[in-house]
Every structure is written in structure tokens, then in C-alpha cells.
Design a protein around this nucleic acid. Structure first.
Lengths: 248, 248
DNA sequence: ACAAATTTGTTCGTATGTATG
DNA sequence: ACATACATACGAACAAATTTG
């Protein structure tokens, strides 16, 4: 008996339907039916060509089709994987992690990784309009969607302007709620700068991603209604799980 | 006689000014004076510690200071380099490569790498509102700033809607001008999706960048004043030479 | 695919000078 | 004068990343 839940090896030869189309259709069924979840590893091309009793080229043609349609991701030397749906992260004046995720019918979570008070170094001090060396609070938070880590954010606040924010964030990882309790009921994202780089070992571990895949990095400045900067944040997104979307 | 144009080795010991500060100041002078241009390789820590007759730690302390101030970039295993200014690429409804670069007082250039007519595959066909297999024109263009490649863009157009666009782009790499000649005097960027990945060997070669550094990838849809899509483009930016900026 | 050379990063330990009380 | 804390400086060894052969 053949294993349940895998594509059948029964192909119709010489019936006018190319073998690779049948294979692609069979695998699409498996993926669509959820038998192979997002991110799951597909059998190797060698295994598939044995199972379907065809040449490896035929399997490759089928896989290329699926990759072109965005259903699978093929990585040279590693294998093939069911494509994970890429979450959209729209940036705009009202960018908020939790709201954004919930709007896509996913479950956001936040977990504080580190909270510290430090003297401000040049860059952060300048954007927060503080003098160098003034105390700032650094809060590092891991953002998860449906239990999978997708973003690691470093948030910087003036310790003088927001006394006790470290304790608040330790209790509840929501930046929005912490600022609300400290007299900033609303804030606006003024500017977002986006770059990419390789993750540090620590970032890769927290994001549960390969060290050979890059992270998208955003630097965002949030300001209060008077235009005063209240927060600077640097966020690393696992590229391939998130894409940043700008609607114009 | 000591070589001209390099930081002097004459340090004042025991005069109340820390050696590492003197070293940092000396190197800052060299960089500021333009003796070391952007991107230039700095001497190794070993060379500098010999030149200044100090321990490597002392040189490192000076370099850390300069890196913290954004003057140099230090890369493990490679060396230290004079920081290059990162170009801003603002995205919005009126995003145009050449205008953007010129506004930063830099000289933009474009060079066509490839122009081809192909049958549309699923993704492009859908965003251009064409049927799969309809002819589309693919134009690959390298964008340069001050002679350095910074972006490699793949632009897709409907061959039926824009007859002769391949020839026009071959003559003049400006997408804006080509579309103007074909009856679209103005267009608007509707949406931009941003991700990151490792470059292909070809992309790395064209962008003159290491294969171990990621590229920022944007997918942009440009529409005419009636809202009809006229172009879809995928652009790879050399991360570290360009950052995408979203003003809200 | 592997090894060697180069370069920066980290962690010990030690010693000295300076400001503070 | 003394103790303490802190910044500075040197030395050695090893780890990690990159480049080259």
C-alpha cells in the first residue's frame, strides 16, 4: 500500500496531457489540501522521479511550473519547499504591528527579549533630540505571527520623557499602550528608511531563520501630534516571511 | 621624510589627551580632507598600530569612535573603509529614478542590459491585466549614480499597448520618455512591495557587489491617470549603496 | 571542496595615570 | 597620605569572517 496523503504515482501516459502537467497538478492538490503545510520540505527531485516513474527532467519541469506560480520555493543545494505566504507589512503614518497583522486575519504576539537603560549614542540621541549620553531605554521585542517569529525590533525612548517605560513594557510588550499610559495617546510614523543586510547570529536564532538569508531592516521615527520624536525603532524582518508594502 | 597625505605618527604622550583620541582626530582629518575618498580602504589595524607606535587596542578604540560617528565602516575579515554616503530612494506616487538622483546633486545614468519580447507568464500577465502568453516587452536596465551601479531594474510592458517600445528604449533608456512618446505623458506609482534576497551571480556582477551581500528588491506597479497599469517593474538595489525612504 | 593567509573581533591579564573623597 | 574607581594603554592568545590559491 502506498503512503496516504501523498500524490499518486498513477499518471496517464499518451492521453494528451503532458506528464509534467499531471505531476504539477498532483502536487498542487497536495499543497492546496494542506497535506504539505507552508514551509514544509518537498521530496527531492530524485524521490519524486522514482515515485512517478519519470525522468528527473520531467519532475523539474513540474517544479518550475509550481515555482513560477509561487507555490513552491526551490533552493539550489537545499531542496524544495512549500512557499510560505508572505505577510504584507504596509507602512504609512499609522503603522502598528498588531493592527496590521490582525487585519490580515492572523494572530500577532509580542515577546520582550531585552529591556535596558543606556546612555544614548550619537545616532539615537540626534533623532530623539537629546544630548549624547542622556539615558535612553532600549526595548528589544520579538514580533510573532501565528507563533512564528517575523520581526525583531529595537525601540529607543528617552528615559527622562517616559519614566517607568521599561517597567511598563516588561509587563505588556505593546509600545502603543505603554506610550498611551505615559501621556502619548497617539503618535505618527514620520519616516521609514529601509535597507537590507545579513542577520547577526543572535538575530538569526531569534527569527528562526537561516544565517544565509538576509533581513529587511527598517528605521522608523515616530512623532507625537506636536511633531516631537517619541520613539526611534530599528526592526529586522525575516525576508521571505514579510514584505513591506507602500501604497501611494 | 614621511609620506605626504597620511596621518602623522607624532602623538603627544602624557599631555592629557588620550592617544586614541589623537589617532581618531588624525584620521578624521585625512578623511575630511578628501585624502581618503568614500569607499577607500583604510590601513589595517596592524599597519596603523605600527605607524602610530601604539597597541592595536588603541587603534581599535579610535576606529570604534569613528565608526560610531558614521565616518568609517568596519567589516570583520575584510577591513575598514571610509563610509560611503547612502543614497536615499524616496518612494511615492511620483517616483522617478533620474529625478530622485538629481535632487541629491548626483549624476544619474541608465544603461540597457537586455530588451526582449516574450510571452507573459502568470504574475506579470495578471498585474498588467493581460492574458497569459500575450506578448510583453522585458527591458532590463542598469541604473548608475556617478558612474557606480546601484540598481538593476526589469521593466515589463504590454507589447500590444506600446508597439515599438523596445526600439525606443534601445535608443534612450528613459522609461518616462519612452512612455511619453507612446501616449502616456504621465503615470503614477500605485504600489511598491519591498523584500530582500541574495543576488544571483549575474546581478552581483552587474551591480559590482559581493555575492554575500543582499539586494533590496522592489516590485512596483505604475498606472496611467485612468488607473490602468502601464508597467510593472522589479528592481534590485545594492543594499548599502541605497536605502528606500518612505515619508508619511 | 579544501587549505592557507589576512583581517577584524573577543577575552584574558597586567600596569599606569587621574580624579574623587 | 591613602583608598577607591575609572579611563587609558599594552601584550598575548584565540575566534570568526573573508579572500585567495
Amino acid at each position: 500500500m502506498k503512503p496516504a496523503g501523498t500524490a499518486s504515482a498513477a499518471l496517464a501516459r499518451g492521453q494528451g496531457i503532458a506528464l509534467w502537467r499531471q505531476i504539477a497538478a498532483a502536487m498542487e492538490t497536495d499543497i492546496g489540501a494542506g497535506k504539505l503545510g507552508p514551509g514544509a520540505r518537498l521530496p527531492t527531485e530524485a524521490e519524486l522521479s522514482a515515485r512517478f516513474a519519470v525522468n528527473r527532467h520531467t519532475v523539474r519541469r513540474a517544479m518550475e511550473e509550481l515555482e513560477g506560480r509561487g507555490l513552491v520555493r526551490i533552493e539550489q543545494g537545499r531542496g524544495s519547499f512549500v512557499a510560505e505566504d508572505v505577510l504584507d507589512y504596509p507602512v504609512g503614518p499609522r503603522t502598528r504591528f498588531s493592527e496590521t497583522i490582525r487585519r490580515q486575519n492572523r494572530e500577532p504576539q509580542g515577546r520582550m527579549v531585552r529591556i535596558e537603560e543606556l546612555p544614548a549614542e550619537a545616532g539615537v540621541a540626534e533623532t530623539l533630540k537629546l544630548r549624547r549620553g542622556r539615558p535612553v531605554v532600549l526595548a528589544e521585542r520579538l514580533g510573532l505571527v501565528d507563533g512564528r517569529p517575523v520581526v525583531l525590533g529595537s525601540h529607543w525612548f528617552s528615559a527622562a520623557r517616559f519614566p517607568g517605560i521599561a517597567a511598563l513594557l516588561a509587563e505588556d510588550p505593546s509600545v502603543t499602550r505603554a506610550l498611551a499610559l505615559l501621556g502619548v495617546p497617539d503618535y505618527r510614523r514620520q519616516v521609514t528608511r529601509i535597507t537590507a543586510r545579513m542577520p547577526t547570529p543572535e538575530e538569526a536564532a531569534l527569527l528562526e531563520q537561516s544565517r544565509t538569508r538576509p533581513v529587511l531592516v527598517t528605521e522608523a521615527v515616530n512623532v507625537d501630534p506636536e511633531g516631537q520624536p517619541v520613539e526611534v525603532s530599528f526592526a529586522c524582518y525575516a525576508a521571505g516571511r514579510m514584505q513591506i508594502v507602500v501604497e501611494s
